[in-house]
């Protein structure tokens, strides 16, 4: 699928903490091997037991729009042909306390609403500079 943000817009700089999130093609949260706590964004330690044995855990990729904004004023000006666009905050069905930002790819920005059911989809992008294939998590509204 084509990118929601314009071509050439910033790509994630991949590091050890976010590699799975942006390359696995799944919705990923960070889980503690010792106490099973899940958290996002990834941290160096578990926020419940403070252990550092952490791993990626794949989720179903279903969620609910918890909040959203419609960006009408372009910052920076290079986005002037892209506005209006929406950014949504998705609460994951598997872990409702976990919230992830993304864009709603199949709906007009101004039609997004709290409570809409969404399903993850992935933008396949190539980071030529880093030599990486990216799978950027995004969201399709499946029930309004």
């Amino acid at each position: 699928m084509s990118r929601y943000m314009p071509d050439g817009w910033a790509l994630p700089a991949i590091d050890n903490k976010n590699r799975d999130f942006f390359t696995s093609g799944k919705i990923v949260v960070q889980a503690c091997k010792d106490c099973d706590t899940v958290q996002h964004p990834p941290e160096d330690i578990c926020h419940v037991c403070q252990g550092s044995a952490l791993e990626s855990r794949f989720c179903s990729g279903e969620g609910t729009v918890y909040s959203h904004i419609v960006v009408e004023h372009p910052i920076p000006g290079s986005l002037k042909d892209r506005v209006p666009y929406a950014v949504i905050l998705v609460s994951l069905t598997d872990h409702p306390q976990i919230r992830i930002l993304g864009n709603p790819v199949n709906i007009e920005a101004r039609d997004v609403a709290v409570g809409q059911k969404v399903r993850a989809v992935f933008e396949s992008l190539e980071d030529k500079e880093a030599g990486l294939e990216l799978k950027i998590p995004q969201w399709e509204v499946i029930q309004t």
């Binding site: 929601y4 943000m5 910033a10 994630p12 960006v71 986005l79």
Partner: peptide, 15 residues
């Protein structure tokens, strides 16, 4: 060209 650290989870989406 790139969003680093925790801004990757937001700036990539125009947030």
């Amino acid at each position: 060209t790139h969003a680093y650290g925790n801004s990757a989870y937001s700036a990539v989406y125009g947030f």
